[in-house]
Simulated scan of single mutants.
Amino acid sequence: MNTNQKAMELLEEHNIEAALKLFRKAVLEKRGVQSLTNLAWVYLHEEDEIENALTLIQEAINLNPKSHFPYSLCGELILKMEKYEESLHPLLTSISIQPSSATYHNLGVAKYHLGEPAEAAMYFGLAEGKSDFTLFNQVKCLIVSRQLAEAKKILATFNENDDDFIGEVDLAELYAELELYKEAVHWYDKGWGIYYKQPDWIAWYVHSLIKTNQKMRAQKIINEVIQLKKEELVEAYEEKIDEDWSVQDKQQNIIQLSNEIKEYQTMIERVSAGVLPQLTFEPSPETGCYLFGCKRHGHPEYED
């Protein structure tokens, strides 16, 4: 059993410190594509050492690897540094060697942040998401690029029974943004008992109810959440201070809950006047296992 194989076994056992020592040893034994890539991956995902990981993976790329792993990892690293233009070359090189869903997704992220939502939507589509946030991103980019018919078509493919389903309220947001308020209300209803009550999404729920002529129901929902927040406020005042919950934490929680109650009390009026919270959208990079010799994912060791 070589050093990389021993390191992989320790990593699989979550013995990170011991695994890291062996991954470093493998680099000392031979600064090759495999050892550099694997150590870079561990630095990123176990140690959060982005700069060190990037230095290693760039060295691996200088060896002209025939695997897409180093390029995929390099693109992911550069995306995390928010250098979107710079990330394109390694990501496109990765795709030219072997297309993968994660890399298509990351190209979508880069293109969106570069102000190219139509191209971003194309790449998110190539990633072939299934009711997940990749598909969510595709729909959002289609909306931003005003490809509304296509956005509605893709939106209809979401299935709550899929393993990576984004969630009811997130799906409702897409329907609300496309002004499909009946469908939005359906999904907000389903998410009501699951999601933590926050003013931003509840405002859009209220908006959807008003748009479907259910203003009285909207008021009922607001009354319900106000009562809930008042109960949380009572509990907040009674919370004891300890090493995990400081006086400042307690005060901030009380202030936040008090402000939320005030916000709910004027929500119907503001939403009826067209004042809605902005729907934020910040697609984030997706990762993958780019470890040579990973038995869990069936990755062979790299052959020079």
Rank of each mutant, 00 (worst) to 15 (best):
R146A: 14
I154Y: 07
A156R: 14
E168G: 01
T157A: 03
D162I: 05
E150F: 09
K153T: 15
L142P: 00
N159K: 11
E160Y: 09
E168W: 13
K140A: 06
F158E: 01
K140T: 03
A149P: 00
V169K: 09
L171W: 11
V169F: 09
K153A: 11
K152V: 07
D163M: 09
I154N: 02
E150V: 10
L171Y: 11
I154H: 01
L148S: 00
V144P: 12
A156W: 07
E168S: 04
E168Y: 15
E150N: 02
S145T: 07
K153W: 10
K152S: 12
F158S: 00
V169E: 05
K140L: 10
D164Q: 12
L155H: 02
I166V: 11
L155S: 06
Q147L: 04
G167D: 10
D164M: 13
K152I: 08
V144L: 14
A151Q: 04
K153V: 14
V144E: 15
V144G: 06
N161F: 11
K152Q: 10
Q147A: 07
K152C: 09
A156M: 14
I166C: 04
L148I: 11
K152G: 10
A156P: 02
V169L: 02
N161S: 13
L142T: 04
K153G: 06
A151H: 06
A149F: 07
E150P: 00
L171H: 10
D163S: 11
I166G: 00
D164R: 12
V144S: 09
K140Y: 11
L155N: 08
N159P: 03
D162C: 05
S145R: 03
L142N: 04
I154M: 06
E150T: 12
R146L: 15
A149L: 08
T157G: 03
A156H: 10
K153R: 11
D164S: 09
C141F: 11
D164T: 12
D170H: 13
I166T: 04
C141L: 13
